[in-house]
Amino acid sequence: MYEELNNLSSEFRKDLDAIKSKPVANLVEKLRLDWIGKKGRISKEYSKLNRLPKDERPKFGKQLNILKQDIEKNLQILKDHAVEFGIEENLSKPEIDISLPSSTRCSNGGIHPISLVQQKMCKIFKRYGFTVYEGPELDHDFYNFTALNIPHDHPSRDMQDTFFVKENPLFVLRTHTSNVQIHTMLQEKPPLRIISPGRVYRVDNDATHSPMFHQMECVVVDKGISFAHLKGMIQAFMTEIFGSNVKTRFRPSFFPFVEPGAEIDIYGPNGWLEIGGCGMIHPNVFESVNYDSEIYTGYAFGFGLDRMAMTLFGLSDLRLLFEGDFSFHSQFSILP
């Protein structure tokens, strides 16, 4: 009878030895079930206990317990080995070719360079306390011209070739985003700092002009705003965009809604580059929105987002921006 237990013990050792060198987890589990599971061999031995004479039972039971504990101990060790073996085995798999392409989807998405530039600039201006405003692209003559000190029958109207609405010629496709300053000033009381990005339209189509393009205008109105402040803000903005070495220049020019008015140039690798217009808001503009120009002064400056995007991304052809060439556009990122 005790011999039987010895046989069991040596059989277990045999089973154990069989998988010891490759302790795969499921084999270890099978071994455990075979031996000490509910229907395992040791359990069967325990069921024999009842059939033994009473005085034999404690001794046999004790021996059986010893055997079981020994098996359990060995199984535990094997189990620990199995975990380690599993990890090692996993780590030993062949190296993958990490240079294989990651995906067979056709493309990566991207945001249009003009949107990227616009987002980037809005972020900068917001830090300086500006608020973004948008306005209508189809607007009444009053907002696009008259209120901006561009009267009827005045040569300053010729500065912008305008698309007129056929059904209602008092409405035009806005020629600049400056219409937004009128809408905003009629709604809000000073002081204000606004930026208005958006699409604008002019009757123009050649290699360097598109009938639709994008502008961003910045307007500040408060007591005591001066041309020096205008210069300061533009310099700060250009520094954020082009880096701290940027040089700006201000040339007197004419935009009807500002006075004095100036062109903004920045110095680049190809010399001075005209990048936008600016000036002090004309008292006539304040008059048309019922702001008191004796109390408040303000400045406005604007620039083309298309030109800015071309400069920042080093693009040479304006038309490429509006052709929807997929391979061109999928080069752009999502983060501005």
Binding site: R193, D222, K231, G232, M233, P252
Partner: peptide
Amino acid sequence: FDNIPYEMPKMNIQPHQED
């Protein structure tokens, strides 16, 4: 215009509610 200094305005302004 090049002789006019660069300056930043001092403004106390709450940014307006943006759409």
